[in-house]
């Protein structure tokens, strides 16, 4: 039975402390029941324990049902993140374009070439804005 204890402890070691003890206790209890049943049906104790451990599956199976939803929610970037992205890209784009204008005027003020790279750089915040608006629309649809 020691083997069962170790197996369960190992399986659930990643759990937060409050939940761990309770889970370990109840799962161990049920697995011991299973081993006893298998022994009654004619297996040796070692065989019974091996079979029980093999058929248990893993901790992911245990939590799949409980935590799948929570994990998904956590992974979703919130709208605030997208807003921060937009802020960052606009500020950076402004700095880059400012630098371009400065270089253009100081070193070669005959040809106004900074417009071309500036246009290219502008697409960065534009893309981020596009993304943000899309996400917002999606979220609104999902809420309805």
């Amino acid at each position: 039975m020691k083997k069962i204890d170790n197996f369960i402890k190992h399986t659930f070691k990643g759990l937060p402390k409050e939940k761990r003890e309770e889970t370990i206790k109840s799962v161990t209890e049920t697995l011991v029941e299973k081993v006893e049943d298998l022994v009654d049906s004619g297996l040796t104790e070692i065989e019974a324990i091996d079979k029980t451990v093999l058929e248990f599956g893993n901790a992911e199976d245990y939590f799949e049902l409980i935590e799948k939803k929570q994990k998904k929610e956590r992974r979703l970037k919130s709208l605030r993140h997208y807003r921060n992205d937009l802020l960052f890209s606009s500020v950076s784009a402004t700095i880059i374009i400012g630098a371009l204008i400065f270089i253009n005027l100081v070193y070669a003020d005959v040809v106004i070439w900074f417009v071309v790279p500036a246009l290219a750089v502008l697409f960065w915040p534009l893309a981020v804005l596009y993304n943000l608006l899309n996400k917002r629309a999606n979220r609104r649809n999902a809420d309805e």
Binding site: S26, T30, K34, G57, A59, D61, Y62, E64, L65, I66
Partner: peptide, 14 residues
């Protein structure tokens, strides 16, 4: 169909 014990116990505890 064989139910994995892990799945079973998580449903039962729920």
């Amino acid at each position: 169909f064989i139910i994995k014990e892990a799945t079973l116990y998580s449903i039962v505890s729920r």
